[in-house]
Design a protein around this nucleic acid. Structure first.
Lengths: 192, 192
DNA sequence: GCCAACTAGTTTCGACTCCAAATCACCTCT
DNA sequence: AGAGGTGATTTGGAGTCGAAACTAGTTGGC
């Protein structure tokens, strides 16, 4: 067992879990006539903050084109899983939010129960797992050019002053729950 | 920070890495006119042992139907990335192997360089990461009904006797390299 | 031996994703 | 006001995907 063999092995396990996750999404989505991409878009929209609840963000998050995201979002709207409203400040942008039905469907399907249980069974090791996965995630994001889509607490724009927490990029205050959502403007600190 | 919040967090990171991996596969495949599923099938066929190099195994591994696997494999054959030969003992089964071109393409695309580097950057923690991911993987497989697709060393059928290592299911001897490949008959030990 | 049941794989069909490119609508900067 | 930029959508063509029908080879019962 040469040390060199561990890097590919960890990737292999990750790749396999990734396939299994997609298979679960396919299976769960099939019951209600949806594809994996629909569940993934719902998942993202359920976690996106107010700067990130748009079709363009969905496209960036999933790594597909805006056109593809647009057509998939249309399906979600037609089924009333997602609501759309025009942004009052910028008439071009479409703001998306989960409907009650969308939220219910999402809670039923993601995370798949088998994943939830398997991670819960790790006990306190789940924390270690997450820490290592976050390290891999940051490494990948640093060199793949895309957006990082993290939460405010891990963002270089996040600031704390006398009046509370706020986003240094927009200057707007952030409530604690808001600061737990994903942001398309998120940037990892340089030495994270 | 309640302990309970760690399970969803680890899943969230895993889910994000999964999207990023797919995005990388999409990007890399697009350069040569292939879809993510094609790269994934190549990846599996490059790792499958002699009991598992068939269209049905590809379908099981990827969690798609046999029909879908069949059409994707046809694309790979038409591009001479994969060779097919009939099984001499069972005229129904089709045995698939990577061509030199397929092997070269696969080596170029998977693992994506950014993943490879990010995991390598973990150093010795890559081993811990893999151990935890394997635990999650087994937990998921135990309860999701599918095949586990592990290697012989982690299989309950694997036996060692005076003449060397062999598979207890087929009774056939296994060379050390063969025992490192993925098997569709793989079964996790009951208390793994 | 022989036929039914089964299994591996393929084909067909309709629905839908996906990209690329064109288009529309709106915003911003000069 | 005009030019260029940006968010979103639409269109067209290629191709995945599941479901179900179908071909062909194998196995088991009698």
């Amino acid at each position: 067992m040469i040390d060199d063999s561990l890097t590919p092995r960890a990737f292999e396990t990750l790749e396999r879990l990734s396939n299994l996750l997609r298979a679960q999404e396919r299976e769960g989505g099939a019951e209600v006539g949806l594809h994996p991409v629909h569940l993934q878009a719902l998942w993202f929209l359920g976690r996106a903050n107010r700067y990130s609840d748009t079709p363009a963000s969905v496209a960036d998050y999933l790594g597909i084109t805006r056109g593809a995201a647009s057509t998939s979002i249309r399906v979600l709207r037609e089924r009333d899983l997602v609501h759309e409203r025009r942004d009052p400040d910028d008439g071009r942008v479409s703001r998306l939010s989960l409907s009650d039905a969308g939220r219910a469907l999402l809670a039923r399907e993601l995370p798949p129960r088998v994943f939830e249980n398997a991670i819960a069974a790790l006990g306190s090791d789940a924390e270690t797992l997450n820490r290592l996965l976050v390290q891999v995630l940051r490494g990948v994001q640093r060199h793949s050019g895309g957006r990082s889509f993290g939460i405010c607490g891990s963002c270089s724009h996040f600031t704390v002053d006398a009046s509370g927490t706020r986003c240094g990029l927009t200057g707007e205050p952030l409530s604690p729950p808001e600061a737990e959502l994903l942001c398309r403007e998120h940037e990892d600190p340089v030495n994270g």
